[in-house]
Computed example of a mutant assay.
Amino acid sequence: MKKLYLKDVAKELNVSKTAVSLVLNGKGDENKISQETQQKIISFVKEHNYIPNQLARGLSRGKSETIGLIIPNISDTFYSKVAGVIERKAKEKGYTVLFSSSYEDPKTEGELIQSMLNRQVDGLIIASTQKNKKEIEFLKKEKFPFVLFDRFYPEHDTDYVIVDNFYGTKKVTEHLLGLGRKHIGFVTLKPGLEPIAQRLQGYHNALQGHNIVANHDYVKEIKREEYFSEVEEALKDLVLCKQPVDAIVFSTHYLASQGLRVLKKLKVKVPDDVAIVSFDELSAFDIVEPPVTAVVQPVKEIGCSAIEILLSKIAGEVQTKFQTKVLKTKLEIRGSCGNK
């Protein structure tokens, strides 16, 4: 079937393209287009299944009706879940979402921001590498609608949606301490991202609150790009040493997932030999044996909050200050911690 364009509708009905566009956008009456002409246009497009080009329609209104979403990696379960929420909520409001992954590369992220702007998106939602201050300042200067989520720039005022990483890790560490676990390891990523730093602070704060001097040898920092091999070396140091840990907090779900593989390989029993907890979770964490205790992030609330804030900015709603949300996490206690 030949694709029908607005100009074809106008030519077939012997009316102007402007008239067709106004009627299809529900503005026929206010522009004094006769009911007869409006009905003729509506009947014709229904009969021929005409679908207006969204970009062209949007641009006629000064909008593209698209939103750009830049995340570290769409294959990461956390980001894919948040992206799904954003996509559904955006669709309800008549917007299409363009997805892109930065793969934690600042240069790629900067290029994606520019590419999205070139494609005339109406706004951006970004889980930033936190290494693109120049681009963030540019968006602020141009008053371009954007919202950060998961990561933000503490030294720059922006709209953002994050979770309370500090309290989430503090709570799960305190849970382990309450079970009598005193030698708690922390497997995390190399410094660089604010959420990771906050999780480490929460771990230390929990130990201090129980008058436990932190053992620096119990904190293992992993390179993201080499986490498969480095997690194995880290766990060997933690569980096969003279004074092994009796619990391990993993600062991300993929570190925890790899940690479980390594512990099985080392024949270390969970939770008998070592208790395991994870910040964030995988869908399989509740069905593996034993099920994994995890700090659960409010994925739906994160996505909904981000899109709501962005749409309010796109609509030009007057705001006296930046909109920021720090959402609470939930501790899902399962068998990997054992009993007191």
Results as ranks from 00 to 15, higher is better:
Met1Thr: 14
Met1Val: 13
Met1Gly: 14
Lys2Gly: 14
Leu4Ile: 15
Leu4Ser: 06
Tyr5Cys: 11
Asn14His: 15
Val15Phe: 11
Val20Trp: 09
Ser21Phe: 07
Leu22Pro: 07
Lys32Phe: 14
Lys32Asp: 12
Lys32Ile: 07
Lys32Cys: 13
Gln35Gly: 14
Ile41Val: 08
Ile41Tyr: 06
Ser43Asn: 15
Glu47Lys: 14
Glu47Cys: 03
Arg57Asp: 08
Gly58Leu: 03
Arg61Asp: 01
Arg61Tyr: 08
Glu65Leu: 15
Ile67Pro: 01
Leu69Asp: 07
Ile70Gln: 08
Asn73Gln: 11
Ser75Asp: 08
Asp76Ile: 00
Asp76Ser: 09
Thr77Cys: 07
Phe78Arg: 01
Ser80Pro: 02
Gly84Asp: 01
Val85Asn: 00
Val85Tyr: 03
Ile86Trp: 03
Ile86Tyr: 02
Glu87Pro: 04
Glu87Leu: 02
Glu87Thr: 01
Lys91Ile: 00
Val97Asn: 00
Leu98Asn: 03
Ser101Leu: 01
Ser101Glu: 01
Glu111Ala: 12
Gln114Asn: 13
Asn118Gly: 15
Arg119Tyr: 07
Gln120Tyr: 06
Val121Ala: 09
Val121Ile: 09
Gly123Phe: 03
Lys134Ser: 12
Glu137Arg: 12
Lys141Glu: 13
Glu142Asp: 14
Phe149Met: 10
Phe149Lys: 00
Phe149Gly: 02
Phe149Val: 01
Asp150Gln: 08
His156Ala: 13
Asp157Gln: 15
Thr158Trp: 06
Tyr160Gln: 06
Asp164Cys: 07
Asp164Thr: 10
Asn165Ile: 04
Asn165Val: 09
Gly168Thr: 06
Thr169Phe: 02
Thr173Leu: 01
Leu179Gly: 04
His183Trp: 04
His183Cys: 08
Thr188Glu: 00
Lys190Phe: 04
Gly192Ile: 00
Gly192Asp: 01
Pro195Tyr: 02
Gln198Pro: 05
Arg199Tyr: 05
Gln201Lys: 12
Gln201Pro: 02
Gly202Glu: 05
Tyr203Thr: 04
Ala206Gly: 03
Gln208Met: 10
His210Lys: 14
His216Val: 03
His216Asn: 11
Asp217Thr: 07
Val219Gln: 08
Lys220Gln: 14
Glu225Trp: 04
Glu225Val: 13
Glu225Lys: 13
Tyr227Glu: 11
Val231Tyr: 02
Val231Gln: 05
Lys236Ile: 12
Val239Trp: 09
Phe250Pro: 01
Ser251Cys: 09
Thr252Asn: 02
Leu255Cys: 07
Gln258Lys: 15
Leu260Glu: 00
Leu260Val: 12
Val268Cys: 03
Val270Gln: 02
Val270Lys: 00
Pro271His: 07
Ile276Asn: 04
Val277Lys: 03
Val277Tyr: 07
Leu282Thr: 11
Pro291Gly: 10
Val292Glu: 01
Ala294Val: 13
Ala294Asn: 10
Val296Gly: 00
Val296Lys: 12
Val296Gln: 12
Val299Ile: 14
Lys300His: 14
Gly303Leu: 10
Ala306Tyr: 02
Ile307Thr: 09
Glu308Arg: 11
Ile314Ala: 10
Val326Ser: 14
Leu327Lys: 08
Leu331Glu: 00
Ile333Phe: 09
Cys337Asp: 01
